[in-house]
Design a protein around this nucleic acid. Structure first.
Lengths: 326, 326
DNA sequence: CTGTTAGCGCCTTCAG
DNA sequence: CTGAAGGCGCTAACAG
């Protein structure tokens, strides 16, 4: 089942078989046909591991994501995979749950030459241990990136997005805008909160309230809303950093006999398709999810091709979609 | 950066280094320490490709999924990954979009020894071409499986689940139950439709209406509902094969000034967490998503360990969750 | 146009 | 307890 058997059967050398396999030009049609026939005869399948070892290129990309269950993540990953496949690359998926140990287990695949590069969608850039494991291997941070760290990144302008969110809500006359944020270990969470506070400050609004959801699941959004409502003065608007969290928050508000948007306006983030189909339809900040993935791959492949290519920090635009919830 | 450098630096043979690396017993502590020191000194990282080639085991599993964006899929994949990781395996993800060509591209990784086995969540068992590529490599069908095909499978009893759905709706006094089904090339869709029709027949109900969503996205659910409402007599209940489709269907019904559940009862499928937080909360058939993934990996690893282990066809239970939408 | 040869980096008998 | 040597299957010079 090796290249050698094919060679023997076709009466040629292994080199020739290899040439046929890899589509080299200089092979006489007659011999090529003999080789092809031999391949078909024994149903030969090249051993890709051997090839990868020899060429030291695996055409595989590692994708480190906090949790694929987050619909935002799965859509970005879809973009990654689509673009990777278009260039003949495959992807290896790691759900880290932000556990350093799991991430480092996967990163050995990078040093172990099993993958040619890595795209991280998790808070790794501020973890020195992981940074060191990545070394100067091809690396792109996607959606969650520190522009000041080494390595390229493709993100949105989180701070700016949060400002737009607040601008929108104040414009609609809201006075007490609360925020349901994600785990503050994430840069995106830090940046959005910074934008939120800055926007309020600019408007001389002193009322602020932030609750953190420990994961991006609607139950966590519900719980955060519960805590928000348990505080003294009730907010008249909530800015959630994910549509998923917003769903939970809306449900919680309803349980408290509050009307959306009359009593509380609600604004989500991400722009998942079903946000438009909720009742009321959810206003949200739409991220270019697919494109985030696509661009990340493009930058990564560029760097794989030329390890000395400069690092790039790209920011894609997001878009406020106004609907009935705010 | 190879094992040989370590050996030279430590003044031992490559064999000894290998022994240390793989935790073999019979190495004198003194030499082991020297080796460990050398490894640390040059920051040696084993080349996993070489190891995989040599041992012909990659500890990687291929997961072929139609589309990771489907929340049902991402939750199953999460289960797969969790269990795989617990056994020291990594996973390679392929979004096939049910395109035979893409699937076969990924399956070369199986014949190419890049992965030790494959879990398919897509309609492949009835595609002879792909079946042949898999050959008798370790293979488990997850969530979408043909019990009559070779290879193991872990599924739910789709037909039975559909019967329960109809039983529930008729019990609530519904007379004209329509179905929003998935792509009929999938076995799950065929089986659920069979259950739907059988349940109606048993009750001597002649009214039936089935529309197919071309993908599992809420927009497709919306479109299917639109077609359903454009038909002559309007249904008083809809059984959708996915909560995602149900969201779209509900939205469409609302646009037509129909109330849920008064005018139309709605029943979803999968049991995604946010189905409980919609308004009204969505009744649904809850699948053991995580467990489907976990069991698949267990069966697969079993078969990798012992290629002659018998094929198993397991069915996990799903559960009707009654909420306000029906 | 084709064959010979030398590894890629590792593990694993088989000797000692 | 340790070393020498062979080979996993493939590609890429280098000859011819």
């Amino acid at each position: 089942m090796s290249i050698e058997k094919v060679a023997r059967l076709a009466g040629v050398s292994t080199a020739t078989v290899s040439r046929v396999l890899n589509g080299y030009e200089g092979v006489r049609p007659a011999t090529r046909d003999r080789v092809l026939a031999a391949i078909a005869a024994i149903q030969y399948q090249p051993n890709l591991l051997a090839r990868q070892l020899r060429t030291s290129r695996s055409r595989m990309l590692l994708v480190l994501v906090s949790n694929i269950i987050n619909p935002f993540c799965s859509r970005v990953v879809r973009g990654i995979e689509a673009e990777a496949e278009a260039h003949g690359y495959h992807i290896l998926l790691c759900n880290s749950d932000s556990q350093t140990q799991r991430e480092s287990a996967y990163l050995t695949l990078l040093s172990g030459k099993v993958v040619d590069g890595v795209i991280t969608m998790d808070a790794v850039s501020n973890l020195p241990g992981l940074r060191q494991m990545i070394g100067d291997s091809p690396w792109v941070q996607c959606a969650e990136g520190n522009p000041e760290s080494e390595g390229s990144s493709v993100t949105i302008d989180n701070q700016q997005a949060a400002r737009e969110a607040i601008a929108h809500l104040t414009q609609r006359g809201r006075q007490r805008i609360a925020m349901i944020n994600g785990d503050p270990r994430y840069l995106y969470a830090q940046q959005r909160e910074k934008g939120y506070r800055a926007a309020l400050a600019e408007r001389n609004v002193k009322w602020a309230a932030v609750e953190y959801a420990n994961e991006v699941e609607c139950e966590a959004g519900y719980a955060a809303m519960e805590r928000l409502l348990a505080r003294g003065q009730r907010p008249d608007a909530v800015f959630a950093v994910s549509d998923v969290l917003a769903v939970g928050a809306i449900h919680c508000a309803r349980q408290h006999q509050l009307r959306i948007p009359e009593d509380i306006a609600m604004l989500g983030f991400d722009g998942l398709p079903w946000s438009a189909m909720l009742s009321p339809p959810l206003s949200t900040l739409e991220q270019p999810m697919h494109q985030l993935g696509v661009r990340s791959v493009q930058l990564l492949l560029q760097r794989i091709k030329d390890p000395h290519a400069p690092h790039v920090h790209e920011q894609l635009n997001c878009k406020l979609v106004e609907r009935a919830s705010s």
